[in-house]
Design a protein around this nucleic acid. Structure first.
Length: 699
DNA sequence: GAGCACTGC
């Protein structure tokens, strides 16, 4: 291939990188979870290090702004130190006096834990006392002693259920707010409401440049037009990163998979030391590029090239031990090439990356509010994402980023990604808001309001499940209880019904297992033996009972990691399922749902599943495909379902529909059509297709 | 017959 590159642009340090900070360097999974080492003699040097961070110069101004404004938006560029330092400035200035707490939210668990660890270390404190964290399944904080508390944004929303005004907090800092995760957005809307009742509550919104004004306008309660009465101010803190040269292709690339391989080989031949990180959209592309690179590097070795290539895949579905390989150091004679999905954009940081290749696309979840069907679509990345990807190459030294698209096309990309709130099924959000006392969700102050049709779909589903009444009010006790579960409402309903079906023990396991992705692992090199082992767990009733089998076998085999490996099962996933199961059990006991086993009878279990998932039913069409009962949509059983290899049952319920190349049903079980009429008479009635009312569907 | 970005409670 002729040299497709031309240098188009020089990326000035800190002008383009969205607000990531010091903590990111500590986010790599390999570095997380260790004990905190405290060296009492290091306090002076820690103090000096703290003063060297770019944010230190702004210390007094930040404190001044917080005295004068209810909300402060801080544009903190990568490496400025905001996440670790600002909470300490607040503590030192007395914001955590009189039993008050400074709270800092993070979108991800690892980040909450690692930043908390770093801050505790800087203060010479034991994690869990003065400095602590709270994430699901792991509360390392002290109700009395903790002054700075790191938590996931989802956890903050949960805390509001117990303490609607968040009275114990004097200041809340929402870190990485520009990521606009679902829970950050929920928290933002709720905090604005809380601020109207609690004038003393201060907010710090840490965001990227692009969104700063949107946040300020949202939180500015001043309607007088007089700027001196503004309640929100903005401050920008420069970052500390290395420059990244950005290159574009001269003309559009017809095949970015091939172009990725060619670019890697070009870098390998022409450039000095430094690892490569390539972004692609999915598992299949990643594996294809890895195998092509392996082939190419063999040819290179044969031709006598001294420097070797080591291509490694990285995506969430990869077994844990395989994921860890990307963090391993390689000898100087080897160049590491990590081929990753979007997981490497924010969730993990790989040290030593100098060269980044960006295919320009991303796989995103989308939601169709008309059909209530979610899909995974490959879409062009946003400019913000592209900058974030490029920035992954400038963390240790100056880097280079190769974009597999033209500069002209870059200019046409959307500035930022559509917030999750606008591309998701809102039923869990609406239920949560109702439980927090937001009666009129249509008038809730959303930073980015979701489509009205999505709200309507959510309200209809919650009504059908009995969580809301005809007036849209939360029902007692059902709706309130459903909201307490960390699950989508259908699962919550199924669990709450499981006592009366006499199968709560099985249902709680099934609900927990369904929260885990990739229970079955299939390494590309061992697909056949893996499939053989997996088939042993499969039952004709479908995926729910198959997952029950897997979990019960896991417990029977003393939760052994060795056993999981032999059976190609995701050990970490099963451990997580056990933790989820325990949490769900606690909630069921709280609501006095009796502990009962179906004693091997599959029918009650399936009926109980129908009591939660009746709206997700489909029947087999003579074409061989399924059709939804809701709106006659054509669907296919996903190849990962055990029913894919079985004789297709006439009627099924499913957990979700995912649109990729076709509409696929995921997590499917066989049912009897009569159960639908019996268990959801308000939703279904027996009849003919010609007649029909609006609400009830004809079975 | 043929396929699942990523978090989080």
């Amino acid at each position: 291939m002729a040299a497709p590159w031309s240098t188009m642009k020089f990326w000035k340090p800190g002008t383009e990188g969205p607000g990531l900070s010091l903590n990111e360097e500590r986010e790599a999974t390999a570095e997380v979870g260790g004990s905190i080492i405290y060296n009492p003699h290091a306090s002076l040097s820690i103090e000096k290090q703290r003063q060297k961070l770019p944010v230190f110069k702004h210390r007094n101004y930040i404190l001044y702004l917080l005295e004068n404004y209810q909300t402060v938006v801080i544009v903190g560029e990568t490496g400025c130190g905001k996440s670790t330092q600002i909470p300490q400035y607040l503590l030192e200035a007395g914001w955590a006096a009189e039993g008050k707490v400074v709270g800092v939210t993070q979108p991800r668990r690892v980040a909450a834990v690692s930043v908390a660890g770093r801050v505790a270390e800087e203060r010479g404190a034991l994690l869990g006392h003065e400095v602590g964290y709270t994430i699901r399944f792991d509360d390392c904080s002290d109700a009395h002693a903790t002054r700075i508390k790191f938590l996931t944004d989802g956890m903050l929303v949960r805390e509001m259920m117990a303490d609607p005004l968040l009275k114990k907090y004097s200041v809340l800092m929402l870190d990485e707010a520009h990521e606009r995760t679902l829970y950050t957005d929920i928290a933002i809307g709720l905090l604005k409401k809380i601020q109207k009742k609690r004038g003393d509550l201060r907010l710090i919104v840490a965001s990227a440049t692009l969104d700063a004004e949107q946040f300020r306008d949202f939180f500015n309660l001043n309607e007088s037009g007089n700027p001196s009465k503004d309640t929100c101010g903005i401050l920008t803190v420069e970052g500390r990163t290395f420059p990244v040269d950005v290159f574009y292709t001269m003309s559009p690339v017809p095949d970015y998979v091939k172009a990725t391989v060619e670019t890697v080989m070009k870098i390998h031949e022409a450039e000095g030391d430094g690892d490569v990180l390539a972004f692609l959209t999915g598992q299949e592309e990643v594996e294809r590029v890895v195998s092509m690179l392996v082939e190419q590097s063999r040819a290179l070795s044969r031709s006598g090239m001294k420097k070797h290539l080591r291509a490694l895949p990285m995506y969430a579905g990869l077994p844990y031990s395989e994921q860890m390989k990307v963090f391993e150091r390689v000898p100087h004679t080897v160049r590491k090439v990590v081929v990753a999905t979007n997981i490497a954009e924010t969730s993990i940081t790989i040290n030593g990356v100098v060269f980044v290749i960006d295919c320009g696309f991303v796989k995103l979840r989308a939601y169709n509010p008309k059909t209530a069907i979610e899909s995974l679509v490959v879409a062009p990345v946003s400019q913000a994402s592209a900058s974030q990807r490029a920035g992954r190459g400038g963390r240790n030294r100056a880097g280079k980023c190769y974009r597999l698209y033209t500069e002209e096309d870059f200019e046409k990309l959307p500035p930022s990604t559509v917030p999750e709130m606008q591309r998701t099924n809102l039923a869990p959000v609406i239920l949560q808001l109702k439980a927090l006392g937001i009666d009129n969700v249509l008038r809730f102050s959303f930073l980015s309001p979701p489509p009205a049709q999505s709200m309507v779909q959510a309200l209809e589903l919650l009504l059908a499940l009995g969580g809301l009444d005809e007036h849209g009010r939360l029902t007692e006790p059902l709706g309130m209880r459903m909201a307490e579960f960390p699950l989508i409402p259908m699962f919550a309903k199924m669990l709450l019904e499981s006592g009366s079906f006499g199968c709560s023990e099985e249902i709680v396991t099934i609900a927990a297992m369904m929260q885990i992705q990739n229970v079955f692992v299939s390494p590309p090199s061992q697909k056949k033996p893996a499939a053989r082992k997996h088939r042993k767990f499969a039952v004709a009733e479908g995926d729910h009972l198959t997952m029950l089998n897997v979990y019960e076998a896991f417990v029977k085999n003393r939760r052994s990691s060795q056993w999981c490996q032999e059976h190609f099962l995701n050990y970490k996933g099963l451990q997580r399922a056990a933790a989820v199961r325990e949490q769900l059990w606690r909630l069921l006991s709280k609501f006095r749902v009796p502990k009962k086993s179906s004693e091997g009878d599959p029918e009650v279990i399936l009926r109980c599943i129908v009591s939660g998932f009746f709206a997700n039913a489909a029947r087999l069409h003579h074409s061989g495909a399924y059709r939804t009962l809701r709106d006659d949509h054509e669907l296919h059983i996903h190849p990962t379902s055990v029913l894919y290899a079985e004789k297709p049952p006439k009627w099924v319920v499913y957990n979700e529909v995912m649109q990729t190349s076709r509409y696929f049903l995921r997590d499917v079980s066989a049912i009897e059509s009569s159960w639908l009429v019996e268990l959801a008479p308000h939703f279904y009635r027996r009849g003919t297709h010609s007649s029909g009312s609006k609400r009830t569907k004809v079975v």
